[in-house]
Design a protein around this nucleic acid. Structure first.
Lengths: 194, 194, 194, 194
DNA sequence: AATGAATGAGCCTTCATTCAT
DNA sequence: CATGAATGAAGGCTCATTCAT
């Protein structure tokens, strides 16, 4: 584990913004070291390869993004409200000037090689997000007539709506997908057993 | 429109598979002309740039993909069944060995530059798909107690579920997202005015 | 087959001197293209890799060297005299200012990887030289009491003496190894069956 | 002389194998320190440069190799038999799995720069080997009709045959050169004054 | 149309060495 | 005595594009 404030961390931080805004493939080592003000060789004392830096970037972003989300959810009490707050979080994020969609999905898209170690970080990140949605849904429907299984399924559905909204808001550069998804989520949270 | 059988079309066809399976950025001109058995210069008599070929690829794929979808929908009568059939179409597609997700979203993901002309093809493609879902939903709910506006909104929701399932099935290399989305779609199609 | 005077041949010619005097590994592509006055990319339109250029170099040198040798042998009538003339050829070669020993053996020495395609050119070159010595020895001893087998063995021995002299004259930067070898060759050529 | 068991010696020992099997130029400092489990800086506290390590390697190998040879010669009584035993020694060496020819000649081949200090170690090593062959030949022919000068010349010849066999067995990956050389050595040892 | 040589900036990575700690 | 971060030139090679033939 590396202490914060390390030069290594500094490189990751600088690279992160470049990777996110320009894409992993479109960002060269040269650009990173220039931005970091270090020599070529220095980069390679901290990372064995660009791919390794990519993994470090995504791993860091995984924690960072989770913190962002959870921080915005923490003041909210009910699980149901937390679920809808996720979409508000998405809307706030969208407003940011350098919004470029989901770093993880973007990286997955430009990394077809199954051997690429960045892919597993992406999968792990999404898996955890899915489980978070499922957990919140389970909590929300606990004590209702809805079966636990159905609650989990609702969690999965909300996850899909979240991902769909994420991708499409990037695509259309518009917030309507988030609104549409949120609208549906509200209805889902009122679901009762048939 | 260029006549089929042209050398230009041949190049597009060959490039299409490479672009789809390897990604646009990871596929070089060299690889394309080698696969096509032509000279560098020949390529540039047919296309002014790689980006232009990318546009031709996506434009062709747009029509092709629409044809695939509509062909699988055509034997089906009701609009509601057509909507669910879209997800079956997705499941069938997933089974293909070289499945690499949505060419349009992948390209969008690795093309941050807003000036890139491929982006508008992607947006156009997705816009049409969205409208198709909205149209089918409108037809399905026509004559019910559901307002036209709500019907359209349901179309948008189904679109988001479709896109979410598309992305996540690529991500997890699994069909569960399609099943989960389809499950929700079935419920939506039974919606009644509150 | 490439016509003489080609740019490709020009590159080979320029690289040949650098490879010979500095060694294959110590000569960079940069140095070659600078000396040739061409761009990086131009080099790679003519050669797929540095190794391929190395093969072209050695193959060319193989023919060139053989021509040198045979040209110096051609005015000589008897096979026996041709054999001794090989060592005179070696002595003349040694005097050249940029003498750096045998390009083939040097390359073999710095190319441990058995997969390296340059190695087979070296082996082929040496095999042919061996056979040339054996052939000359056979001719020399034809009609004497010495058996054909023994004659061939003498050819092999003379080959070893030649190679030994080649390597050691490079090592000691002196001509004595050639003289010593030649002395022995003279005795061998007078051999009679025991 | 450094005491055995020193860290410096440890580095030399580890580098020796790498240098021999991969070549001096193809072996990087990184690989050496990784294999030795030490830091970059530690290496440079023991050696001022890679070249210096190269000198230490060759110097050590000089003694080691001489010991190998003399150990295999020591049980043999007559000088003539010792001379032929050198070629048996060569044959045994060839059988070793990691045989890569003569470390000294290989290094000479990839080190054109006359200033390189490794070159003098090579020359010294070969000079001593030559003198050893000359000494053994002198002893062998002592008391015969052969003049001392001729005996020394025979020693030189046998040296050239040894070197030729050494180089060519590496080249052809075969033992025939050793056999051919040995055959000639046997005949030489029976030489009488003309 | 078609060719393929030419371009040169750019790719990621390794090199031997230095030096502050 | 050991560490490992820092250096920056150099390594071989690929890129999309241009252009004379």
């Amino acid at each position: 584990m590396s202490k914060a404030g390390t030069k290594r961390d500094e490189i990751i931080e600088i690279a992160s913004e470049l990777f996110y805004t320009q894409g992993f493939g479109s960002t060269g080592i040269k650009q990173i070291i220039d931005a970091a003000g270090i020599a070529k060789g220095t980069f390679y004392t901290h990372f064995t390869s660009k791919e390794q830096l990519g993994v470090a970037w995504l791993t860091g972003r995984h924690h960072e993004w989770n913190t962002w989300l959870e921080t915005s959810l923490s003041p909210i009490e009910s699980s149901g409200s937390k679920l809808t707050a996720c979409f508000q979080f998405l809307k706030d994020w969208l407003k940011e000037s350098n919004y470029r969609g989901c770093a993880f999905l973007n990286t997955m898209a430009e990394t077809p090689d199954p051997e690429n170690s960045m892919r597993s970080v992406v999968i792990q990140h999404k898996q955890q997000l899915l489980e978070r949605f499922q957990q919140l849904a389970s909590e929300h429907f606990a004590g209702t007539t809805l079966s636990p299984d159905s609650a989990t399924q609702h969690g999965s559905t909300i996850y899909l709506l979240f991902e769909g909204a994420l991708v499409e808001s990037q695509n259309f550069q518009d917030t309507w997908p988030v609104d549409a998804a949120l609208n549906q989520v509200h209805q889902l949270l009122n679901s009762k057993a048939a």
